[in-house]
Write a protein that binds this DNA or RNA. Structure first.
Lengths: 331, 331
DNA sequence: ATCGCCGATACAACCGATTGCATTGTTGGC
DNA sequence: GCCAACAATGCAATCGGTTGTATCGGCGAT
């Protein structure tokens, strides 16, 4: 910028103002500066701007694993939305290790980012000691156990209830639940709503809930759980999987055991991943607005961090049941 | 830092050196400073450090769409690797628009990032005018048309040839190719190797190549292409899909037309996505080391940017054929 | 006892922009 | 024709660190 100022025969402050579009520079000066900037290919140093301005214009997104389709869709929504607003997205993956999460937290403390969107259901510890962190952090999909932090999610209990009602109406009673690890609020909600429904409908004794090992909730774990269920005898007529990934694995296990879906066993998923209509058979599932969750979360955090908007407690988006061909009617 | 210096009764330069582990500070001073730092919860301002040091310790990853499973796996590999080295990853998605790509390029020019990993097969124009950009840019999966830029990829031609040989040995002659848009070098290579193989084996007249519309290469496009192929009559005995996503869609279309796979039609995919062994039937495919591509690419760029290593032209990783149950033998 | 050397720390410039305030020059009013 | 007011620009401090060089003090050697 000093170079530009020299060439234009003005001070750097004038160049700065000209570039910022301040009304305090003449058209002529502005034109001259613009011309020189164009000729020399000069671009401002964002780092210096950040240092002076105190804003990094960057937001950190924390997921446990970007390779999981659910998260990558959410992140896509976030990145698109923030890019439109000139905000960069830093991507952090925790691999479900608290240590990594703590490392990532430093990015906020050291001023590398202005805010954090977490899709893991937890806030890195070091962040909690920051005064006013509530406005700088936002949770998507999984709520975090902290007052004042905005959370964008869906109504997991209501959705689960609707799924169960559907299965029940179709004549299913012997319904198994396959879910992910219960440290996740999402899975706790879905499992809880399942259990409640079974109890309320006098099916408490038929309720069977299975969760994946420790940290796994991918298709493979669904496959293995389903395999063990099939080996136990006393087969269910329907399986409610807490995610489509689990359902894809579970259906594969059923097919491998020569079960015809849905004739022998029905399946219901959750998420409506892009691939599920192409499964064999197309999977009935709950549509979860993943991109939209990302978009809304990004918008909300943007307003909180850069526009001084207050944080709200919860933003609940709509879900809806997608009925395809994986559920049979029992007569 | 000034505050720390004041409390410790020393100069900021001493604090800086103490924190940096310089041998030029006494144990006592260091201990005192460490204690005060700990008590006050002080953390350095990375932005200031970057301004002075000229390094952002950030690298930009450009993909067209993080929601595509192929890309999200590559990105996972990149993020893990760079995190280990203390480098942040900025994620940029182009949605295949040159405009967005150009915007992202600015991050390098303005010093926000020190390097770029592109998985789109192209380098943003503004970057090309940077002297020495070759060392700051690296391509993964798809090569870029620029001398001196390192590219991490696999041998698409060899892999395609092996697939075709396999299908040929199993008795298939009427083999269709379904690929993505040909502006991508990857798809051109795979299609070219397919065409060559057909010609070299006297099957030139049976060669049929279909590409998806413009920018689409997801499962849905595979579905629609397959549907139109089935409508044309003169059905192929085998379909070679240039990606697993296309294959998943194509298989769904075949099933919907009451074709039994592989009895009526065989399928071969490419990528070995995590879900393909769970398909119905499990898909034969080419294993592509996506995480490893990300890791190796990240390592190489890290060395180039931060360790002054020279750029190499090409890093070719191993692929291998995964034979499952989607290909029948024709007698 | 004095000189020289060395280790520990302080001083100050620097990275590259932004911005409040001072200064300069011009114009308009009376 | 002089002064006030205002528009345009320059000056300099600032953001928060890092680092080359200067300074200070103590100790060993002669």
């Amino acid at each position: 910028m000093a170079e530009i100022a020299r060439l234009a025969g003005v001070d750097t402050s004038t160049v700065s103002r000209a570039l910022a579009g301040s009304p305090r520079v003449t058209k002529e000066t502005r034109a001259l500066i613009d011309k020189i900037v164009h000729e020399t290919g000069y671009v401002v140093n964002e780092t210096a701007r950040h240092l002076r301005g105190g804003r990094a214009n960057q937001i950190l997104v924390i997921v446990s694993d970007i390779a999981a389709p659910f998260y990558s869709d959410v992140v896509q929504g976030i990145v698109e939305t923030l890019a439109e607003r000139g905000i960069n997205v830093l991507l952090g993956v925790t691999l479900r290790q608290a240590k990594r999460e703590a490392q990532l937290a430093k990015q906020l403390l050291t001023g590398v980012v202005d805010g954090i969107i977490t899709v893991t259901g937890s806030i890195p510890k070091p962040v909690l000691s920051m005064p006013g962190f509530e406005r700088k952090v936002l949770a998507i999909s999984r709520a975090v156990p902290h007052e004042g932090v905005t959370c964008v999610t869906i109504d997991n209990c209501a959705a689960t209830r609707q799924v169960m009602q559907h299965l029940h109406q179709r004549g299913h009673r012997r319904i198994v639940y396959i879910g992910g690890p219960n440290y996740s609020e999402t899975y706790r909600d879905r499992r809880g709503a399942y259990a409640d429904f079974m109890r309320e409908n006098g099916l408490a004794e038929l309720a069977r809930m299975r969760a994946t090992d420790s940290f796994n909730d991918d298709a493979d774990s669904g496959f293995h759980i389903m395999k063990s269920i099939l080996n136990e005898g006393d087969r269910p007529t329907a399986v409610f999987c807490a995610t489509d990934e689990l359902a894809i694995g579970a259906m594969a296990a059923a097919r491998q055991a020569d079960q015809i879906i849905p004739r022998d066993i029905s399946f219901f998923g959750f998420d409506d991943l892009k691939l599920t209509p192409l499964m064999s058979p197309p999977l009935s599932t709950v549509s979860v607005p993943r991109f939209e969750m990302g978009r809304r979360g990004a918008e909300a955090l943007f307003r909180q961090v850069y526009k001084d908007a207050p944080s709200s407690s919860k933003v609940v988006l709509d879900h809806r049941l997608i009925l395809r061909d994986s559920v049979a009617t029992i007569v």
